Computed example of a mutant assay.
Amino acid sequence: MEDNKEALLIIDYTNDFVADMGSLTCGKPGQECEEPIIKLANEFIKKNDYVILPTDCHQLNDPYHPETKLFPPHNIEGTVGGDFYGKLKSWYDENSTRSNVWMMDKTRYSAFVGTNLDLKLRERGVKTLHLIGVCTDICVLQTAIYAYNLGYKLIIHKNAVAATSPENQKFALDNMKNNLGAKIV
Rank of each mutant, 00 (worst) to 15 (best):
E2L: 10
E2A: 04
K5W: 01
E6S: 08
L8R: 00
T14N: 00
V18N: 05
S23T: 14
T25M: 04
K28F: 05
P29N: 14
G30M: 10
G30Y: 10
E34S: 11
P36T: 06
K39A: 06
N42P: 06
N42I: 06
I45F: 09
Y50Q: 03
I52C: 07
L53D: 04
P54G: 10
P54E: 14
L60V: 00
T68D: 02
K69A: 15
K69S: 14
L70S: 13
P72H: 05
N75C: 05
G78T: 07
G82I: 00
E94D: 15
S96N: 15
S99Y: 03
S99N: 11
D105A: 08
Y109E: 03
Y109P: 00
V113L: 15
N116M: 05
L117I: 11
R122Q: 11
G125D: 07
V126N: 02
K127G: 07
T128I: 01
L129S: 13
V134P: 01
I138E: 06
C139L: 05
Q142M: 05
A144Q: 05
Y146K: 04
A147E: 04
K158V: 03
T164N: 04
F171D: 03
N178I: 14
N178D: 15
K183P: 01
K183S: 13
V185G: 00
